[in-house]
């Protein structure tokens, strides 16, 4: 196999809060790895041949890489803002391409049909125009001014509101969503999707959040995000082909899919093709 550009990226491989000496046996891009707390209390990640891999602790997770990361892990400045509650949502395994999992996270048009009465509902299905760009300085995909009708803005809220979203893709299998924060107008709630690629068609997904919310019990916050992600899971396991097609002829995008179009273009440009299908079959 030729060396894939994705080898040198950082990936989540476990929750810091669940790190123990017993360890977690998992995998990264087909390689079995072991994540554990070492004798000195720090996290170690090792391949089955005992070779140690780079480790980084950030955003509630242990991160590692099979290759030689050229950059530090992407920054989420909001994560360090005082007053935010950091939510470890936990892992959910999905039999799908890690890239399909990210692309679905970037999509709003499915809200009325998959997250019915929570994130969207008929007849409020229209996706208004929004802005998408590949920011060359940061080398990230951004979608801004994304607005969508949300029937249940918060657990306590009666009736719907128009929620604004910003999406950011700083790494091939990670995305950060900034979402209207009802208790703090002017601030954004941060909801992330960190995807650990186990294989080209199998991934462990680690959602994580940094929210301004002093009211809702932690368990409710976890359950809300698990609900949303598991609603997506049965979609992700039933897309054909399983790999994300980067050939433009294979699937039909509309204006509502411009984030996905930019994401696919960005993946192709960088050769981030682990979990992608390059030629229509």
């Amino acid at each position: 196999m030729t060396r894939n550009a994705m080898m040198d990226e950082w990936y989540p491989v476990g929750l810091v809060s669940q790190l123990d000496a017993h360890g977690r046996s998992t995998a990264l891009m087909g390689e079995p790895i072991e994540v554990k707390r070492g004798d000195d209390g720090t996290a170690t990640v090792a391949r089955s041949d005992g070779r140690h891999l780079p480790v980084c602790i950030r955003y509630g997770h242990v991160w590692s890489s099979l290759g030689d990361p050229q950059k530090p892990l992407f920054a989420i400045p909001e994560a360090d803002q005082p007053g935010r509650r950091l939510v470890d949502v936990g892992v959910v395994r999905v039999r799908c391409s890690p890239l399909r999992a990210v692309e679905n996270f970037l999509d709003i048009a499915h809200f009325p049909f998959v997250h019915t009465d929570i994130l969207g509902s008929e007849p409020h299905t229209e996706v208004q125009n929004y802005k998408v760009e590949i920011r060359e300085d940061e080398d990230e995909v951004w979608a801004t001014q994304v607005r969508f009708y949300q029937p249940q803005a918060a657990k306590s809220a009666e009736g719907g509101i128009t929620t604004e979203y910003m999406y950011r893709v700083p790494a091939p299998t990670c995305s950060i969503l900034y979402k209207t924060c009802p208790p703090r107008p002017g601030e954004w709630d941060v909801i992330t999707l960190f995807v650990q690629p186990l294989a080209e068609d199998l991934c462990d997904v680690w959602p994580w959040m940094a929210l301004f919310d002093d009211e809702t019990p932690m368990t409710d916050l976890i359950h809300f995000q698990q609900t949303i992600f598991v609603q997506d899971r049965s979609i992700l396991e039933n897309q054909i082909p399983g790999l994300l097609p980067l050939d433009p002829g294979m699937e039909i995008p509309t204006r509502a899919d411009l984030t996905s179009v930019a994401y696919r273009r960005w993946l192709k440009r960088h050769g981030y093709t682990y979990g992608a299908q390059l030629v229509a079959q």
Binding site: F113, T116, D117, E122, P123, Q226
Partner: peptide
């Protein structure tokens, strides 16, 4: 419903 069991959208009429 619960997560993993989707709404039967056919029970609702098509929006106009």
């Amino acid at each position: 419903e619960m997560p993993g069991i989707h709404r039967l959208h056919e029970l609702k009429p098509e929006p106009g």
